[in-house]
Design a protein around this nucleic acid. Sequence first.
DNA 1: CAGAATCCGTTAGGATACTG
DNA 2: CAGTATCCTAACGGATTCTG
Lengths: 124, 124
Amino acid sequence: MKENNKTQTFTKVECADRLSAVEDAIYVLGGKWKLRIIVALVSGYHRFNEIQRSVKGISPRVLSNELKILELNGLVKRTVDSESFPVLVEYIPTDYAETLKELVSMLGNWGVNHKKRISSEIDL
Amino acid sequence: MKENNKTQTFTKVECADRLSAVEDAIYVLGGKWKLRIIVALVSGYHRFNEIQRSVKGISPRVLSNELKILELNGLVKRTVDSESFPVLVEYIPTDYAETLKELVSMLGNWGVNHKKRISSEIDL
DNA sequence: CAGAATCCGTTAGGATACTG
DNA sequence: CAGTATCCTAACGGATTCTG
């Protein structure tokens, strides 16, 4: 049976599993902020206020929440250096977060394309 | 300057644009139901109640809303055959919806992997 | 069958002020 | 600096009933 990425076939169970996997991914990455924060993190912003400035429009409350969730999901590591003053807290993206780069890239490509489509529709 | 998919570089403006593109994509595809509905559509479910049965747990109100939004975004076409009785309404995924297959596939892969990670963490 | 109408609870997230 | 605490609103979405 030939199977390239254009003609993947799945049994019903496999299909259901994959669907729930898609949902899992959306659950972890969805919402207004998570991917934006991840991008900020991998772009080199590690301090709380730094991230807040980088991710425009986010409030500290929301940022704090999202960072906790991202940490729970193993995408970022919170480190505290209590020797320094003021206490230095850093949010470091894990290697695991890197695995999202390709996905983010694809989403971006699709989004760019989609914007073109939509705006050209308006012209019709 | 070498540029493979591991070392893409962007100017600040390009980066901001791409980021907003990612947001656009999430906006169009995000939420609890949209990708699930798209999967149902490309899987061959075209009638309203058919789709509702396929996408487990969705209410008619929500399904109706989502379908309208998907139509606005060009991902599905609503067709009515008023000659027939009862009136036959069908929701046909556009070719454009096919462009999501790869994305959905990647999300699925990532999700599968993520579930493994998370559940193995619990064992630690 | 294909939805619309209604009602209602939950939650995401915004604004702002405050604290160690 | 790195958050927490409060308050508040809008949107999401569930349940149910109704209709052409």
